[in-house]
Design a protein around this nucleic acid. Structure first.
Lengths: 127, 127
DNA sequence: AGCAAAATCGAGAATTATTCTCATTTTATT
DNA sequence: AATAAAATGAGAATAATTCTCGATTTTGCT
């Protein structure tokens, strides 16, 4: 694998946010830095970052894939209305039980997402 | 919401399996019962069943959406190689911790999937 | 049963996210 | 500087899903 400014930029952009962005948002941000970067390049590099273990795809059942540069095992929250994704802090007992289960069933990892209408969407619904 | 044979068939097919099938597999099965059923009808009815709370979409980060007629909160396993999805039995402490967390953060539900290469794919890899 | 309104359907077109192709450019090596 | 391998940008191709629309089915009413 050779160095490329595009790949570095994709990684920088992904690390710059905790918003679990989609590929096209990352593409937009990269364009601000490398105006003629191609969308396919962004997809290619995201794929490689995931393969290298430097990023993960967050499966939240939305239309678009979401990416995260935080590859540690952690829990997500997601709004089923607007699709927003955030990191969710969970209790120590839950974390311990997850870790234990993972070891017990020899899993490579897990994905845990709690679904909850976010404050913004709840406010809109009540209007 | 009116009755329709197509919707009943989609629901019957979905309930008949524990394989967490994709829309096109369900379409294939429905065709055996109603040969001229349309793919859009299957998608439409799956969407309605989900909206009614009679089915869930299982987010496993695969290309295709997976559906499940078991709407109780339960844990999934998924093979990152072939995409197979199964129900995973977990320890009582984990179940309790999940339920507690859900109540604590007022979530509508959660999705927990453990990733693990399935026996079949592991056997192939070792050849 | 007969009728009108509303719901649903089937077929195929349209949309959307993602992947692929290929000629060109960049990177690493000598 | 010459070369091979890797990466790129642009746009075409693919694949899952959604939309459109005229035809059919279901429901509620008489």
């Amino acid at each position: 694998m050779n160095y490329s400014r595009q790949r570095e930029t994709v990684y920088d952009v992904l690390r710059s946010t905790k918003d679990h962005p989609s590929a096209d948002w990352i593409y937009g941000e990269c364009k601000k830095i490398i105006p003629n970067i191609g969308l396919a390049t962004v997809y290619r590099n995201l794929e490689q970052l995931v393969a290298q273990g430097k990023a993960i795809k967050v499966p939240v059942g939305q239309d678009k894939d979401r990416f995260d540069a935080d590859v540690s095992l952690h829990v997500h929250g997601a709004c089923p209305v607007c699709g927003k994704v955030w990191d969710e802090e969970v209790s120590a007992p839950l974390n311990d039980a997850l870790k234990a289960e993972c070891e017990k069933n020899h899993s490579d990892g897990y994905s845990l997402t709690f679904f909850r209408v976010c404050g913004e969407c709840k406010a809109k619904q009540e209007q």
